[in-house]
Write a protein that binds this DNA or RNA. Structure first.
Length: 556
DNA sequence: GCGATCAGAT
DNA sequence: CACATCTGATCGC
């Protein structure tokens, strides 16, 4: 009924003017590997830094990468507002001042240069770097009311005055009751509760920081030179954004999507599209599935989704914009050898790489998925030999880690039990091997999938109790890169499970993000001109560390 | 009562 | 730290 009234696309005037601006402006940001003239001792910030905070640039507390709900505000508060040059915004300015690599130049990139001869000829030979409009370009809003009053901005500003949106549309978290409780696997919970009183509303930070917009879309979620954003649903209507891309169906990426979504079309893989419709009840007319490995032209930009080797439906997004530039957004991914065979990544150089840097630290050199899977199978078999009456539990979030329980299922020839809600999700993948291995009755198999958060001794003890006639012990796996310990390294046999009575829990370094080594290989294969990290960026020291990694990888 | 939207916890 | 949520509180409708 309301479907017809809903605007599918953002205001066309805004979009075209923004695109035009972006064609004229080349922003500064991260280190340009082709122009190694960055001087660490020079103060690049002096001309801008004074106004940064006053202008509502994202502070550490606001601009949180993809997954930092707990934020470190020390940086800004202890060091004073921005004059130290340590805030996100000043770092943004400081880390390399030249985006000129985005202008096509003679001999700079032979592959792209050849392809783009025609386009390049149309470009003016000299481009002025305009900085005055950067605020607008990246979507940073001023906190005073001086900026122009388009409807959406006015609304954002109004609602941000007190940190809450007054129209209540479009910015919701996905936390309705149905999704929340036992959706993907339930476990009997003890009645014990620790009651923590929340601060009264009037004491909350967002209210006191009333002169600062609390949620502007951070620059690294915007694809420069396009009206596109990636995984940016928690910011309401983003000015100048007419296409919202979703890399995969994990909460920290789709957060903000709900059935009231009306800010623009959502582009994603067919699997992700199905989940967005099924689980979030987003109006289907906003959801546009794009087949993988297929070129789609969206607002003049060639867009191709590639397998990301993360969770089912996860995609890398490749953008080829009309001036010949190529950008790759990895979303969350685990880099692997097969990616070096993707024709799109071979045929053209990627100019800007938006990179999942979750484990971009030399300490994360964890084993391959395959090694972890054989290890899990080995442990399971040993355990069952010693105690045949063992219930095997694999922890998982919403989606992802399917291969862990599938490997056990295959090796032992047993079915997989997951509760109805998780089953529905898993069946939606259209993955025959997985679908065929599921069972509906929990008594029919010794292999169960539970929410990873429920893998605690107390929980598992009571879970085992409900099956006491069948089982005498529990063997549980929590498969996450986060369990990785340097002392273990590649030697999985050094893993020490934690045990309590007849409950044994193994933390296994099964990661769906790239290890440090895999990141390095991927970056060295791509040789991008610029890298914009998208994870672990709320801390200046971290950012600096990562950039120096990139520099080292791309030397020579 | 329910959805939206925070803060805080794991 | 935070892999990706999960939980509880409050407010508006």
């Amino acid at each position: 009924m309301e479907e017809e009234d809903m605007p599918l696309f953002a205001d066309a005037t805004t979009v075209s003017s923004l695109v035009q601006q972006q064609e004229e402006i080349f922003p500064e940001d991260y280190f340009d590997f082709d122009d190694c003239d960055y001087d660490h001792n020079r103060d690049y910030t002096s001309s801008y830094v004074v106004s940064l905070d006053e202008n509502g640039f994202p502070q550490v507390g606001d601009e949180d990468g993809d997954r930092h709900s707990n934020v470190n505000t020390d940086e800004s508060s202890a060091m004073g507002s921005g004059e130290d040059g340590n805030g996100f915004a000043s770092d943004f300015y400081r880390c390399g001042t030249d985006w000129s690599c985005l202008v096509l130049e003679e001999g700079k990139d032979s592959i792209n240069a050849k392809r783009n001869d025609n386009l390049r000829d149309q470009l003016p030979s000299e481009r002025k770097l305009k900085q005055s409009n950067l605020f607008q370009m990246w979507g940073f809003k001023r906190s005073d009311a001086h900026f122009s009053v388009s409807t959406s901005l006015a609304r954002d500003f109004k609602s941000n005055q007190n940190g809450y949106h007054e129209d209540g549309v479009g910015e919701g978290y996905i936390q309705n009751k149905k999704m929340k409780t036992g959706n993907w696997g339930s476990i009997t919970r003890d009645a014990q509760k620790i009651i923590v009183k929340s601060k009264p509303l009037y004491m909350r930070k967002s209210i006191h920081d009333d002169n600062r917009p609390s949620r502007a879309c951070p620059f690294y979620k915007k694809i420069t030179g396009t009206p596109f954003t990636v995984d940016a649903f928690r910011y309401g209507c983003i000015e100048g954004c007419s296409a919202y891309f979703l890399t995969h169906f994990h909460y920290d990426h789709y957060g903000g999507l709900s059935k009231g979504w009306s800010h623009g079309p959502i582009y994603c893989s067919p699997r992700t599209a199905r989940l967005v419709r099924m689980c979030l009840s987003v109006n289907p007319s906003f959801i546009i599935p794009l087949d993988l490995n297929t070129e789609h032209v969206i607002e003049g930009v060639k867009v191709t989704l590639l397998e990301a080797n993360h969770c089912p439906g996860a995609a890398l997004i490749h953008f080829h914009i009309p001036n010949g530039q190529c950008y790759l957004h990895t979303g969350d991914f685990r880099a692997c050898k097969e990616m070096q065979g993707f024709p799109l990544l071979i045929s053209q150089r990627v100019n800007v790489l938006y990179l999942d840097t979750t484990y971009c630290d030399p300490k994360y050199k964890f084993p391959s998925k395959e090694d972890v899977l054989s290890y899990v199978v080995k442990i399971t078999k040993n355990c069952l030999k010693k105690q045949p009456r063992t219930l095997v539990v694999v922890g998982a979030y919403s989606i992802g880690k399917e291969c862990v329980y599938l490997a056990i299922s295959k090796a032992l020839g047993v079915k997989i039990f997951a509760n109805a809600s998780r089953r529905r999700t898993l069946l939606s993948f259209g993955w025959p091997e997985l679908s065929g291995s599921l069972c509906t009755n929990e008594k029919d198999t010794l292999l169960h999938v539970l929410p990873i958060s429920s893998l605690k001794f107390e929980n598992l003890k009571s879970y085992l109790k409900t099956y006491h006639e069948q089982y005498a012990a529990v063997l549980a796996f929590r498969p996450t890169g986060w369990t990785y310990r340097e002392t273990v390294g590649y030697k999985l046999d050094l893993i020490k499970p934690s045990s309590k009575g007849n409950i044994t829990i193994y933390g296994v370094p099964y990661s769906e993000h790239s290890s440090f080594t895999e990141l390095q290989e991927f970056v060295q294969f791509l040789r991008p001109q610029k890298i914009i990290p998208t994870v672990n960026i709320s801390n200046a020291a971290n950012r600096e560390k990562m950039q120096s990694c990139f520099r080292a990888w791309l030397k020579g």
